[in-house]
Design a protein around this nucleic acid. Structure first.
Lengths: 197, 197
DNA sequence: GTCTATACTATGATAGAC
DNA sequence: GTCTATCATAGTATAGAC
């Protein structure tokens, strides 16, 4: 049964890579089959449709992300520390699942049309709620500014964090932990030089 | 000749809207023709191919953006002011050309395969060089931090700015100028509360 | 400048042999 | 569980009448 699962997993992995590189709509079932090393008809033994593959790539990704967010929220920390941890957790997930991250970021219009979209929507809502609750907590205790809408701040952070999959390469000396620290520092302390007074 | 240009323009506008909503690959020439109000064969009187439409949407967009950036850089200002102006100019372009902005942000993998990609690449390089020169100037004169790579800062700002087309709606009371001010304030001063000492 | 009609290709998916 | 063969559909693009 390890073997049985492997082929399924290979299909998901190859699909995610192709979806991320070319877009879901431009990726054909024949390309996926080629990459896996089977013929296109064989895919339909494992999945009922191409859309089912897309759906599983996205839901597996959101499940992983949410489990990491829940770990962060399970520990008692300040809002600032939690925000730093959410950024770091997100970047680590993006590092370990770059293709699925790209698919989720780029293919929302496709995902929205999937029959199983409601489950995705619920997970996405929990993701957003996690960030917003941390930001609201920081506003409430005075550690974050109260002159800018938390939702605006959330969206800027979210987009900057997730779009890093388009350019960040974990191979170099610039580690994901350093990237996370820089990101948190810019968003919390700003890029202007600190006033030396 | 006003009429002649109008149909061409209508094709470009409708195409950009559909490309932004559904993605380029998922948009068919028949859909475009429907939206314009002609039959699909008629499109080929104005454009040699669907890809030619995509190309013109993107290049017209980059031309507009670069002309705004050049206006900003033509005036003598501090790096901080210039950064604020680049953010504001970008958000104004995103407001006036939301569909083209979305297409350019979402469809890079498609655009890269176009035969005329080199021109797009050159324009994109000038965009990036504009931002980077302003950031480097700010580092040089001590108004920006020197402990974070300018390219990292640039990418965070760029992605946060451009992805705002996915969520910002100019109809409400939250104006694009206010959005630009909030964005610049977060990225330069940070979201942490100012220390009251 | 637009329409009609159609050529050609590629697509997602299926049925049945192995 | 995979392959062969194929269906039905939909795609871009073209030729020529109007």
């Amino acid at each position: 049964m390890a073997v049985q699962g492997d082929r399924r997993t290979a299909i998901l992995r190859c699909s995610a890579d192709l979806f991320a590189r070319q877009g879901v709509a431009s990726t054909t079932v024949r390309q996926i089959a080629d990459e896996v090393g089977v013929l296109s008809g064989s895919l339909y033994h494992h999945f009922p449709s191409k859309d089912a593959i897309v759906n599983e790539v996205v839901t597996a990704y959101l499940d992983l992300l949410l489990s990491r967010y829940r770990e962060v929220m399970a520990v008692d920390r300040t809002p600032r520390e939690r925000l730093e941890q959410l950024i770091a957790a997100s970047l680590r997930v993006a590092e370990s699942e770059p293709s699925a991250t790209v698919v989720y970021q780029n293919e929302m219009s496709y995902i929205r049309e999937l029959p199983q979209y409601e489950a995705v929507k619920a997970a996405a809502a929990e993701v957003q709620q996690t960030w917003l609750s941390v930001i609201e907590d920081g506003r409430a205790d005075g550690s974050f500014r109260d002159d800018i809408d938390p939702r605006v701040f959330y969206r800027f952070v979210r987009d900057a964090v997730w779009l890093s999959v388009r350019w960040y390469r974990p191979e170099g000396p610039y580690t994901v932990e350093r990237l996370a620290a820089d990101c948190a520092s810019i968003f919390l302390d700003g890029y202007a030089a600190f006033d030396p007074e």
